[in-house]
């Protein structure tokens, strides 16, 4: 006999993600899910962000890696509440992991929670964790063909930080082609060119974040 089911296979993750969303809404925490390849510059961007913003905003971080606490140690050195999640092999963070991680942070008053996802241009795009926005970081050293090769990541993100632009003079990176392909894959994707080395473009990123934090507080 046939049983009609009609269910999303990822419903378990979706349910916890929605619960996380409600919790973050109650606490008025603006949550950024930061994704990108290993080495794109996620942790360094976060360091610059925290250095710039921590005096006026209460920031906390959830670090996701397969192994090692290296990234969490870097962030914790900036004396903000930090939790390291080691997935032990899972290629992305899911909403349950984030819920568990947040338990160690929730006694703090937080305006901005940055979740640094596992370095991976594929899987994190498929799993909601209860974030307000998905931000992806890709660096010019990775090549200009990424929008076509990893379309889902580009489609689910609201903002792309194109990082390490200080290295452009040494690379054959076709900026026009990259921007054009990214636009075709997601016409609503905002692209900001950045360099953590020179500081170029980071002010735009900080402003974008401050705006997000402000809007979340007003809700």
């Amino acid at each position: 006999m046939e049983i009609k089911v009609v269910k999303n296979i990822l419903e378990a993750n979706e349910m916890i993600a929605s619960q996380n969303e409600e919790l973050f809404a109650q606490k008025r925490v603006f949550v950024v899910n930061m994704m990108g390849s290993p080495g794109a510059g996620k942790t360094t961007v976060m360091e610059r962000t925290i250095e710039h913003m921590k005096d006026r905003h209460r920031i906390a971080v959830i670090e996701g890696d397969i192994a090692s606490s290296r990234d969490a140690e870097r962030i914790a050195a900036l004396t903000i509440p930090t939790v390291q999640i080691n997935t032990g092999g899972a290629c992305h963070l899911d909403s349950t992991m984030v819920r568990e991680g947040y338990k160690s942070l929730e006694s703090n008053l937080i305006d901005l929670l940055i979740v640094e996802n596992v370095g991976n241009l594929v899987c994190p795009a498929e799993f909601r964790i209860g974030e307000d926005v998905k931000v992806m970081i890709t660096s010019v050293t990775e090549g200009d063909d990424k929008p076509l090769k990893y379309p889902l990541m580009f489609q689910v993100s609201s903002l792309l930080l194109l990082n390490k632009i200080d290295l452009l003079p040494y690379l054959d990176f076709d900026m026009e082609r990259f921007r054009s392909d990214a636009f075709k894959v997601n016409p609503r994707l905002e692209v900001m060119a950045t360099s953590c080395k020179t500081g170029d473009g980071l002010d735009n990123w900080f402003r974008w974040l401050v705006e997000g934090v402000g809007k979340k507080r007003e809700r």
């Binding site: 006999m1 046939e2 049983i3 009609k4 089911v5 009609v6 999303n8 296979i9 990822l10 016409p187």
Partner: peptide, 19 residues
């Protein structure tokens, strides 16, 4: 136009099962 919406392609569903 870029004012488009994806209406299918991201499904991951169990439709039915036979026992």
């Amino acid at each position: 136009s870029t004012d488009v919406e994806m209406i299918s392609g991201r499904e991951l569903e169990i439709e039915s099962m036979e026992i």
